[in-house]
Amino acid sequence: MNLFDKLYDEHENAKVRFIGFTTDQTRYDFGIVFTNLFFGKPLVVCMQTGRSTLLDPKDLDDTEFLQKVFKMSTIQQALDLSQFFKIVIPTPVFETQYE
């Protein structure tokens, strides 16, 4: 009997960007993994806390979501992060699956 039912096992050479920046209130260090998996959403990892999420451009307008995911103490921190991610996370371009 198999112990695991494999759902997927993909290998990919992904682009990774490591970036650190500061605002008036906080220092940030992120790793951003750009991949073709997960519908083109990049995996964003906070290098300070290890918290991570898949982000899509629509998520960047939801500052409450960003505040919750990255455990930020103020909404201003989430607004700053939203503004930053809008610059570094491109809008995904999807290929047409059906014609």
Results as ranks from 00 to 15, higher is better:
87 I>L: 13
5 D>M: 14
35 T>Y: 03
28 Y>E: 04
20 G>E: 01
85 F>W: 12
88 V>W: 02
71 K>W: 12
73 S>M: 09
91 T>E: 10
33 V>P: 01
19 I>R: 02
48 Q>Y: 12
17 R>G: 01
16 V>S: 10
65 F>S: 08
76 Q>W: 02
22 T>N: 13
53 T>K: 03
96 T>R: 06
6 K>D: 07
24 D>C: 05
28 Y>A: 03
52 S>A: 12
37 L>A: 04
57 P>S: 12
39 F>A: 15
16 V>T: 11
49 T>R: 09
47 M>F: 11
47 M>R: 12
94 F>E: 01
8 Y>P: 05
1 M>R: 01
96 T>L: 08
15 K>S: 13
73 S>N: 14
87 I>F: 10
70 F>L: 09
6 K>G: 00
93 V>R: 05
22 T>K: 12
94 F>S: 02
21 F>C: 04
9 D>I: 04
40 G>K: 10
34 F>P: 02
51 R>Y: 05
1 M>S: 04
10 E>M: 06
97 Q>A: 08
47 M>A: 06
79 L>P: 00
60 L>K: 07
53 T>F: 02
34 F>R: 03
82 S>N: 13
40 G>C: 15
43 L>I: 14
53 T>D: 10
39 F>I: 13
63 T>N: 10
42 P>N: 03
75 I>E: 15
77 Q>A: 04
93 V>T: 08
83 Q>L: 03
74 T>F: 07
72 M>H: 05
68 K>W: 08
50 G>I: 00
11 H>M: 07
21 F>K: 03
74 T>C: 12
93 V>M: 10
3 L>M: 15
78 A>G: 11
46 C>F: 07
67 Q>P: 07
42 P>H: 05
28 Y>K: 06
3 L>H: 08
55 L>N: 06
70 F>T: 11
47 M>K: 12
70 F>K: 04
24 D>V: 00
91 T>P: 00
12 E>G: 05
17 R>L: 15
45 V>Q: 11
4 F>W: 05
10 E>D: 09
32 I>A: 04
3 L>D: 15
38 F>I: 12
78 A>R: 00
54 L>E: 01
36 N>L: 10
96 T>C: 14
68 K>F: 14
75 I>Y: 10
89 I>W: 01
30 F>L: 06
10 E>I: 07
10 E>G: 04
46 C>E: 09
25 Q>N: 09
4 F>N: 12
27 R>F: 11
79 L>A: 15
34 F>D: 11
51 R>L: 09
6 K>Y: 11
93 V>C: 13
51 R>W: 02
40 G>I: 13
69 V>C: 13
58 K>R: 07
70 F>A: 09
87 I>C: 04
38 F>K: 11
62 D>V: 02
64 E>F: 08
41 K>E: 08
21 F>N: 06
45 V>I: 13
26 T>W: 00
73 S>K: 10
66 L>A: 08
7 L>H: 05
19 I>D: 03
81 L>I: 06
55 L>G: 02
41 K>T: 04
25 Q>H: 07
83 Q>N: 10
64 E>R: 13
88 V>M: 09
92 P>L: 00
31 G>W: 00
82 S>R: 05
86 K>L: 12
59 D>S: 14
2 N>G: 00
77 Q>V: 00
79 L>V: 07
78 A>Y: 02
90 P>K: 04
15 K>G: 07
14 A>R: 05
